[in-house]
Amino acid sequence: MTPPAVADSSTNSPVAASQVWSSLADRVLAGLPITEAEALAVLACPDNELLSLLDAAYRVRRKHFGNRVQLYFLMNAKSGLCPEDCSYCSQSKISKAEIPKYNLLDRERLLEGARIAAEQGACTYCIVISARGPNEREISAVEAIVPEIKRQHDLKICACLGLLSDEQAQRLSNAGVDRVNHNVNTGGTYYSKICTTHTHEDRVATLRSVRDAGMEMCSGGIVGMGEQPADLVEMAFLLRDLGVHSIPVNFLNAIDGTPLAGRSDLDPRYCLKVLAMFRLANPDREIRIAGGREIHLRSLQPLGLYAANSLFVGDYLTTKGQAPQADYDMLTDLGFEVVMTGEAAGN
């Protein structure tokens, strides 16, 4: 049943609406987790209460991260050769999207990507391959390059290599990988609608292997694939329960040639409500506005950072992102501070 405080949010009084969301923030700041009903109420927030909701999310964000923003840089280290059938992905075996296809980049290209990441102010360099999981050559290459990148650029390393065994995760940890990204993508109930070649539990098992190897877990999802609000809440609570450190929230870029091409279920206000829900459900975790923000948040992108505290800078895997200077200008206009290399993103 929806708690009384949240049920009252349907009032037409702006003051009462502000008090409802402020009260919810008070409870989160006091260490009380939000309930499923409260999370659903956040996603159903009336548009005329959106600024009050964002104020509540910002209070929680400010406690744990102040006005600091961490930037990430993606390197698509192996493109378009994935045997999985994820319906959102331009690199899957069922995609007809016209994208570059190549095997693992060589040492020089990976180092060049790290140099660009450092120049663009990123603290974390994300090495991503399209695969079910890494083969021996690929994992050995990552093991070899990570110490070199750290020596030259003092970047944190996030590896996104697909499904991992316990032994592979431990090897990455031993090599100095700081965190591993493996998105759960949506709630477990909906997962079979977007992929059939592996299960939601396969993805969760990889996260457990990462955690057991002593690395940070990075895992989030994609909004706008036809899921229900309850699926997003299920995902947010799973990430909370797993103890995921960093949560990228993507908004579907419906790429031509993929099964989800042409889908457009989102508006900017709903996207902001999603970010607020993830912040309130995971108050002290890094929430990153990831792929699709330029398409779906559009002119409201700055408001997203009142809930989220990190961004990808530059391009994504197979799609273009906003020009880095536009992101820097946005952060300056907000009065926010970019976390510099070597600094921690939290308190």
Score class of each variant (00 low, 15 high):
residue 247 I to N: 02
residue 246 S to E: 02
residue 197 T to R: 04
residue 197 T to F: 10
residue 220 G to H: 01
residue 272 L to K: 15
residue 214 G to C: 14
residue 200 H to N: 10
residue 215 M to F: 11
residue 229 P to S: 08
residue 204 V to H: 05
residue 248 P to D: 12
residue 275 L to E: 11
residue 212 D to P: 00
residue 255 I to Q: 06
residue 200 H to G: 10
residue 239 L to I: 03
residue 238 L to G: 00
residue 267 D to K: 15
residue 267 D to G: 13
residue 285 R to L: 10
residue 221 G to W: 00
residue 247 I to G: 00
residue 259 P to R: 00
residue 211 R to D: 14
residue 224 G to I: 03
residue 221 G to F: 02
residue 227 E to K: 01
residue 282 N to T: 10
residue 242 L to A: 13
residue 212 D to H: 03
residue 233 V to I: 07
residue 193 K to C: 08
residue 251 F to V: 10
residue 255 I to A: 08
residue 226 G to K: 07
residue 223 V to W: 14
residue 200 H to P: 12
residue 278 F to V: 11
residue 227 E to R: 00
residue 193 K to E: 15
residue 252 L to E: 14
residue 269 R to G: 03
residue 232 L to Y: 09
residue 198 H to C: 00
residue 206 T to M: 05
residue 251 F to R: 03
residue 247 I to R: 05
residue 275 L to G: 04
residue 204 V to Y: 09
residue 275 L to F: 03
residue 282 N to R: 09
residue 205 A to N: 05
residue 244 V to K: 11
residue 210 V to C: 07
residue 247 I to V: 10
residue 262 G to I: 10
residue 245 H to C: 08
residue 247 I to E: 02
residue 229 P to E: 05
residue 266 L to M: 13
residue 241 D to W: 01
residue 264 S to M: 03
residue 265 D to R: 05
residue 276 A to C: 09
residue 215 M to E: 13
residue 276 A to Y: 01
residue 224 G to Q: 07
residue 218 C to K: 00
residue 209 S to L: 00
residue 212 D to R: 02
residue 257 G to W: 14
residue 262 G to M: 13
residue 273 K to L: 10
residue 244 V to Y: 15
residue 252 L to S: 10
residue 267 D to M: 06
residue 215 M to N: 06
residue 212 D to C: 00
residue 283 P to Q: 06
residue 202 D to H: 09
residue 231 D to R: 03
residue 209 S to N: 11
residue 217 M to Y: 02
residue 223 V to Y: 14
residue 263 R to D: 01
residue 240 R to C: 13
residue 281 A to K: 02
residue 261 A to E: 15
residue 266 L to E: 12
residue 217 M to F: 02
residue 271 C to M: 11
residue 279 R to G: 09
residue 201 E to H: 07
residue 241 D to H: 01
residue 226 G to E: 08
residue 271 C to L: 15
residue 267 D to I: 07
residue 274 V to R: 06
residue 213 A to Q: 05
residue 264 S to C: 10
residue 204 V to D: 05
residue 243 G to Y: 15
residue 268 P to F: 09
residue 224 G to E: 02
residue 228 Q to I: 03
residue 240 R to H: 15
residue 208 R to D: 13
residue 206 T to E: 03
residue 207 L to P: 06
residue 217 M to K: 15
residue 280 L to Y: 12
residue 203 R to Q: 05
residue 214 G to P: 13
residue 271 C to D: 05
residue 219 S to N: 12
residue 232 L to F: 05
residue 235 M to Q: 04
residue 252 L to G: 11
residue 195 C to S: 13
residue 230 A to I: 11
residue 288 R to M: 08
residue 231 D to G: 04
residue 203 R to Y: 10
residue 245 H to V: 02
residue 223 V to N: 11
residue 249 V to T: 11
residue 281 A to M: 06
residue 273 K to A: 11
residue 207 L to M: 12
residue 270 Y to D: 05
residue 233 V to T: 02
residue 237 F to C: 01
residue 199 T to H: 01
residue 193 K to L: 09
residue 216 E to L: 14
residue 236 A to K: 09
residue 265 D to C: 04
residue 245 H to W: 11
residue 199 T to R: 00
residue 231 D to F: 05
residue 270 Y to T: 04
residue 224 G to C: 09
residue 243 G to M: 06
residue 277 M to Q: 04
residue 268 P to H: 08
residue 196 T to H: 14
residue 277 M to H: 09
residue 268 P to W: 13
residue 282 N to D: 10
residue 269 R to T: 15
residue 238 L to Y: 06
residue 273 K to C: 12
residue 209 S to Y: 08
residue 222 I to R: 01
